[in-house]
Amino acid sequence: MSNNINNVTANRETALHVMKEKDMNQVNKTAKIMKVLGYIAVYAFLILMAFIVLFPFYWMIISSLKSWQEYNLAVPTLWPQVIHFENYAVALERANLERVFGNTVYVGVVSTLLSLIITILSAFAFARLEFKGRDALFAGLLATMMIPGELFTITNYQTTFYFGWGDTSKWGFTILIVPFLVSTFYIYLLKQNFLQIPNELYLAAKVDGVSDFKYLWKVMIPLAFPTIISITILKMMGAWNTYVWPNLVIKDKDYLLVTNGIREGDYSVAGAVDMVNYPLQMAAVAMVSIPLFMVFLFFRKYIMKGVSRSGIKG
C-alpha cells in the first residue's frame, strides 16, 4: 500500500517536474545534440590529422615492399600485389647499411657512456659541492646553449684536423665522438634532478663516513634514474640522426653513420643509372626508421618527458 502511494506521489511530482521543465528540456536537447555533433567533429578532425601524420610511414612501408614495376603503375596500389622482402636485402648492400649501422651503434654506445660519466660527475659537483665561482660558472655554461652549433663547427673542424684526427681511417670514431661528449643541457637537466634530492641524505651519508662515489652510485643515480634514461635515449637518437658533422669530416667512407649511408646509397635501377629505384630507397629508409620506432614504443614515457624539457632534437 504505502509503496503504491509513494509511487503515485512520485509520479505526480515527476509530472509536475516535466511540465515545469518542458521548455528547459527542449533547450537541453538541442544543447545535447550540439554537444554530440561537436564530439563527432572533433574526433573526425583528430582522426583525419592522424591519417595525415601516419601517411608517409604507410607509404614508406608499402613502397619498400613493391617491385619497381608495381611502384610505377599509373594507378597506385594501396597494398603490394606481391610482397618483395628481398628489397631489404638489396638495399642493405647498396647503401652499405651493415657497416654504417655498426658504426652508428658503436659511436652511439661509446659516446653515451662517456657522456653520462662526465655529465653525472659535473652535475654532482654543481648540485652538491660548494666551491668558489660555482653559480657564475654554471650561468656561463647555460649561456653557451644559445649559440648556434655551426659557430662551434667551424673551429672544431680546424681543431680536430690540428690534432691529426682528420686522418679518418685512423681516427674516424674519435673525430665523431670526442667533440660532442659534453652537453651543457644534459648537465643542467641532471643537476636540477639532483637538487630535488634532499641535502640531508648527503650530510647523513657524510656523517656515516660514506664516500662521495658510493653515495653517488647508491643514492643519487638510482633516484635520478628516469632522467639518466632520458639522457641516454636522446643521446643515442642523436647519434642515429647526425648528418652534418660526419658528412663534413669523414673522408674514409667506412666511418660514415646511418644518415650519411642512406643519403649516399646507390639506388639506381639496373640498366638505367639515372633512374632511382624508389622501392629500394624506401627499404633503406625503413630500416633506418624502424629501430627508432621500437625504441620509442619501449621508452615512450622517458622520451616524451626528456623532449618536453629540452626543446631540442637529439
Partner: peptide, 19 residues
C-alpha cells in the same frame, strides 16, 4: 601517433616525402 614524426630521422623521412 601525433608524436611519431618526432622520433624519425629527418633526412630519411625527407626522402619519403620526395618519393
Amino acid at each position: 601517433i601525433y608524436f611519431l614524426p618526432y622520433v624519425t630521422n629527418s633526412l630519411a623521412i625527407g626522402m619519403v616525402f620526395a618519393a
